[in-house]
Amino acid sequence: MLELRPNCELCDCDLPPASHQARICSYECTFCADCAANELNNTCPNCGGELTARPIRPPHRLKLHPASTRRIIAKR
């Protein structure tokens, strides 16, 4: 089950569960589309994997499996 992390790990902008701007790697590292494309060349700085669009969980499923509230910010 994806965590659906609430923020970009690079710029800390909010990425709500329904955001089409969220990008993730296979380890669920989470970045906004702007940072992924312009700062990271769509490559995760943590694992080297591809950053791709995060799927959106349907609202009725968010009630059963809510998004994470834990914010992660990368150390530079």
Rank of each mutant, 00 (worst) to 15 (best):
L2I: 10
L2M: 10
L4F: 15
P6T: 09
N7H: 14
C8M: 06
C8D: 04
E9Q: 15
E9M: 15
E9L: 09
L10W: 13
L10C: 12
C13T: 14
C13Y: 03
L15T: 06
P16T: 13
P17E: 13
P17L: 05
A18W: 11
S19D: 04
S19I: 05
H20N: 13
H20Y: 00
H20M: 12
Q21C: 05
R23I: 02
R23Q: 14
I24E: 06
C25V: 05
C25M: 04
S26G: 13
Y27K: 12
Y27L: 14
E28Y: 07
E28N: 08
E28H: 09
C29H: 15
C29G: 02
T30M: 02
T30Y: 02
D34R: 07
C35P: 04
C35D: 10
A36V: 02
A37T: 11
A37M: 06
N38R: 05
E39L: 07
L40K: 01
N41W: 01
N42L: 12
T43Q: 10
T43H: 01
T43S: 04
C44P: 01
N46P: 00
C47V: 00
C47A: 00
C47H: 03
G48R: 01
G48A: 01
G49H: 05
E50C: 01
E50V: 06
L51W: 01
L51E: 01
T52P: 00
A53F: 00
R54A: 10
R57I: 08
R57K: 09
P58N: 09
H60D: 10
H60N: 09
H60C: 03
L62F: 05
L62Q: 12
K63M: 07
K63A: 12
A67W: 06
T69M: 07
R70M: 11
R71M: 05
I72L: 11
K75P: 06
K75R: 13
K75V: 09
R76V: 09
R76D: 14
